[in-house]
Design a protein around this nucleic acid. Structure first.
Lengths: 233, 233
DNA sequence: GAGCATCTTGACGCCGCCTTGATGTCCGCG
DNA sequence: CGCGGACATCAAGGCGGCGTCAAGATGCTC
């Protein structure tokens, strides 16, 4: 249950079509951007980076196929063409220009929604790249939720992991007690003591000498920091 | 440019349609497999693991929509439905079952070829994942729906299999209770207890010592994970 | 409609984690 | 030199998550 659905950019010069799409999509949780021209569309696209595009082909200041081609130069978001033109040549041109689908007007709302779901499936399938941080003997793989020290796997409790992951995402930078509390314990946590206790546990599991931390260092009066480069001396 | 083009599995019971597709595709460098029934299609699919599927909906021994759904359990290869049925309901069903596109007969050759190119673009964006997963004594063949432990076949109930298959598709990474519930029990399932009970059953059948799981490990407070590398110690 | 397999639902006990308080240590500053 | 504040450490306790068992509920095949 996401708070806000995918952002869709509708590009069509007919107000009637836009109204129809607005009714169909917003009621399903999609967020909408609307453009009436190529110029306006590109402006909104670069500004908001939508998740999905719905393009008409005939626009007052240019061709939808060219718009699709230019969008494809910088975004992989799904592009669905909605056009009254039903000629095969139009379809082939649009699809080869980078469009992912082509619906001929008039079309049913349910078919459009189904094809939008297909587009979302494709967008979601894009491979997630591993996010790993390595510093000294410590290795934190955020995509696999895996922590190792000198190759040995370390078992962490949920809060220990959240604490370490937070520091790892901002490796090298200081995080204040406030920031840590808000991120790990929620927005209305106040007990700074939590952080100390769990930091001690974390050091026991991660540091070679928990009494003299080399990775999870204290910044007195400010907060904590995870060193991103470790000198051996 | 590959030496040999993508392997396409055509599933249609009319010889005329198959001949038409054969002429259109082989001349463009595609390699072709042909099936006249669901049974034949699944046999060829598991045996050759095609790159693209072209499915008719009305088949002598079953429904193309069910075929698409079953293929989607183990392959992400593009599925394009070619059907004489033009009702919106048919399209929605097929697309939601896992089809990527839907063309109503009769259609133009050039449009089909353009949509095939779109499908290939998508396939290229997401690297294919292995169909069988092996980790320690466990082996899961997603295309055959077959699970073995140390060579011995294991009988799983439908939900047990869906649970294991889900974990196998994401082997090595943690799946949260939420994710598991959504994927196995549907989008509005909430009872986290389901997962525990069925996980226990699964462990009884798969783990050497169900009390000390080495493959299906729980990540406390988060979810479960199927180990993709198993150390012997 | 009987019988079977499977899924759901509830009860219960254990273990681990988080919280919380007490105490100890370091350091700067008056 | 004594004091206070920030930080570290330890231990106790409560609570919730997790595993397990088992009894209904459901749905299927024959």
């Amino acid at each position: 249950m996401t708070a806000t659905g995918p952002l869709v950019l509708v590009v069509d010069d007919e107000a009637q079509v836009r109204r129809f799409l607005r009714a169909a999509l917003t009621s399903r949780g999609y967020r909408l951007l609307e453009a009436e021209s190529v110029r306006e569309a590109e402006q909104l696209a670069t500004g908001h980076n939508p998740d999905i595009y719905l393009l008409d082909l005939t626009l007052p200041d240019g061709d939808g196929v060219d718009l699709a081609r230019r969008l494809r130069e910088w975004t992989k978001a799904p592009i669905i063409v909605l056009s009254a033109r039903g000629r095969e040549e139009d379809k082939v041109n649009a699809l080869d220009a980078g469009a992912d689908d082509y619906l001929t007007k008039p079309f049913g709302v349910n078919e459009l929604l189904a094809r939008l779901r297909v587009a979302q499936r494709h967008a979601q399938a894009s491979p997630e790249q591993p996010v790993v941080l390595e510093t000294g003997p410590l290795r934190v793989d955020l995509s696999r939720r895996e922590v190792t020290v000198e190759g040995r796997e370390v078992r962490l409790t949920p809060t220990e992991y959240r604490l370490l992951a937070l520091l790892a995402r901002h490796a090298g930078r200081v995080l204040t007690h406030r920031q840590i509390l808000r991120e790990v314990w929620g927005p209305n946590a106040t007990e700074a003591h939590y952080v100390r206790v769990h930091m001690a546990e974390l050091r026991k599991k991660v540091e070679a000498d928990p009494a003299r931390p080399r990775l999870l260092v204290t910044e007195p009066g400010v907060g904590y920091r995870l060193r991103d480069r470790v000198e051996s001396a």
